[in-house]
C-alpha cells in the first residue's frame, strides 16, 4: 500500500487524474462522503487531501510515501525528499514584479515582499543585492501599492493579477512546475510500486497526451 498526498485544489485534481490514467485509480475518491482517506486495496493505493504547502511535510516525515507539489514549495522549504518526476503541469514562473517604471536605486536596501523568503534571499544573495525581506502570507500584490515594499517576489501564472494591480514582471527567476516527490525511506521499502507509479506517470508526460481533469469533492 502506498500513501499519496494530494494538494487540495486544481493541482490535486490534475494529479489524481494523471495517476488514475496511469492505472492507480481509486473509485472511493469520487464518492460524496466525509471520509478523509480513500483506498483502493486492489491497486495498493491510499489517497488523502492536504494543504498544498503541507504536501512536502507529509512526504518528508513519511506520513505520505509520495505526493505532488510545486517546485516553488520545494525551493522554499528544501525538504529532504526525492524529486522523481517533473509532471509538466501547474506551470508558472517565480518572478520579481513591480511598477513598470521601477528603477532599482542600488544605494538603498531593496524592500521585497514575498511568501518565499528563502528563495528570494538566495536569489538576491546570488546577484549581490542587499535586501529587506517582508514576509507576507497572501495578497502580496498589495504591498508595493501601499508602499510596504518596492517590489514583490512571487509566482506568476497568467499575469492577470499583476496587470489588474498595474504591476509588471521585472525579472523571471525560475520556472516552476509540479513534481512527484517521494520519502527517501519509502523509496527503499516500497521501491517497486513507487517506480511503477513514476514510470506510469512518466509515460503520460512524455506522450504529451492530455488527461481530462476529474472534478473531485474535497
Amino acid at each position: 500500500m502506498i500513501n499519496i498526498a494530494l494538494a487540495k485544489g486544481r493541482l490535486g485534481e490534475k494529479t489524481y487524474s494523471m495517476m488514475a490514467a496511469a492505472g492507480f485509480d481509486c473509485p472511493a475518491i469520487l464518492e460524496k462522503n466525509r471520509k478523509l482517506t480513500f483506498e483502493n486495496t486492489e491497486k495498493g493505493v491510499r489517497y488523502f487531501w492536504v494543504k498544498p504547502s503541507d504536501v512536502a511535510i507529509y512526504v518528508e516525515r513519511g506520513a505520505a510515501d509520495v505526493g505532488v507539489c510545486g517546485k516553488d514549495i520545494l525551493l522554499e522549504y528544501e525538504p529532504d525528499i526525492y524529486e522523481l518526476l517533473d509532471l509538466d503541469i501547474g506551470k508558472c514562473r517565480m518572478c520579481v514584479a513591480g511598477p513598470q517604471d521601477f528603477y532599482d536605486n542600488e544605494e538603498r536596501t531593496l524592500r521585497v515582499a514575498t511568501k518565499f523568503s528563502n528563495v528570494a534571499s538566495k536569489y538576491y544573495e546570488s546577484i549581490g543585492r542587499d535586501i529587506d525581506i517582508i514576509k507576507l502570507n497572501g495578497s502580496i500584490e498589495i504591498a508595493p501599492l501601499l508602499g510596504l515594499s518596492d517590489v514583490i517576489f512571487d509566482i506568476v501564472e497568467t499575469g492577470s493579477t499583476l496587470r489588474e494591480n498595474d504591476l509588471h514582471v521585472l525579472q523571471e527567476v525560475v520556472p516552476v512546475s509540479a513534481r512527484l516527490i517521494c520519502n527517501k525511506v519509502s523509496f527503499q521499502f516500497k521501491h517497486e510500486k513507487i517506480m511503477e507509479l513514476r514510470d506510469g506517470l512518466g509515460r503520460i508526460v512524455n506522450s504529451g497526451e492530455k488527461v481530462e481533469t476529474i472534478k473531485l469533492e474535497h
Binding site: E60, R61, G62, A63, N183, K184, V185, S186, Q188, F189
Partner: peptide
Amino acid sequence: GAVADIPFT
C-alpha cells in the same frame, strides 16, 4: 541504513 516503520535514516 534505514528500517521499515521509521521514515528517517
